[in-house]
Design a protein around this nucleic acid. Structure first.
Lengths: 143, 143
DNA sequence: AATATAAAAGACAAACATATCCTTTTTAAA
DNA sequence: TTTAAAAAGGATATGTTTGTCTTTTATATT
């Protein structure tokens, strides 16, 4: 599983994408309330997504967050990298700091191959597509 | 990446597999020293692998640990499950406790498919094969 | 300009994972 | 039967992640 922060981030951006045609902004309290997640915690996450340009944020009265074109076009992979960085996809799975193609750990090439597959899968679907999936049938849930 | 404990566990069982034809046991201090990992911490990990029947352990003078047939036939997947349980491969990637085939999160079916691939990959190679890989060329490293 | 609203930012706290230490138990060898 | 080696087990410490609270900054409205 992804970690908790990634899970919250993905749910939040999908939520914003679902509300993409709403006038005005979506407030932090609405997001936290709808997703049933701790408001301050999700606030930090949205803050860092905004810093990375993956969502829009506005201060002041009627402020809040909003999906942009970039949000809708972003993939699950993009969100993960924005939050955790690329390290999880590059460091040695056995924790060896010296491990690389020249001095590989015994599972190095397996791991490299598998990571390419995973990256491919995580990049296949955009946030907009996931929002649309959510909209197609009432069985889908975000909370 | 796997977590630190999994990394230590895999390196230790591969190390034991490399020493599979040694007479007698491999002591904890030898393992910790060779792999350059904290001795007490790796001790606990080996202890739990022994409890799960994945390696042999012997107390007393000349005691230590040893690879068994089960060790050599085990896969990376088996080691991970022995340490962390199956939860990482079954719980919702977005952290939703209700998520299942009937009430899926938007990425549920993607995740299920990808996990099958990952499980397949992690089950493809045995510890013995990884030890043999290590033995084939001096470029491979365990520490 | 003053006020109210809402996110940003930073400080703090709790929970969990990681790591170490110390004592006990087991057992082989002298 | 005594001794010493080595793992087992329990208790504790450290560090990192996760989560909360408070203050600051920005901005729309009056």
């Amino acid at each position: 599983m992804f970690n908790k922060t990634i899970g919250y981030a993905l749910r939040a951006v999908i939520y914003l994408a679902v509300k993409r045609n709403h006038d005005g902004n979506i407030s932090l309290s609405e997001i936290a309330g709808s997703l049933k997640v701790p408001i301050h915690y999700i606030g930090k996450i949205l803050q860092s997504l905004a810093k990375n340009g993956l969502i829009l944020s506005f201060k002041g009265p009627n402020g809040g967050f909003k999906a942009s074109e970039k949000t809708l076009e972003a993939t699950v992979f993009d969100i993960i990298v924005a939050i955790d960085g690329a390290a999880p996809f590059t460091v040695c799975s056995l924790g060896l700091s010296t491990c690389n193609n020249e001095q590989p750990c015994p599972i190095h090439f397996d791991v490299v191959r598998q990571r390419e597959e995973i990256k491919g899968n995580l990049s296949k679907r955009t946030i907009l597509q996931l929002a649309e999936t959510y909209e197609t049938a009432s069985i889908y849930t975000l909370s």
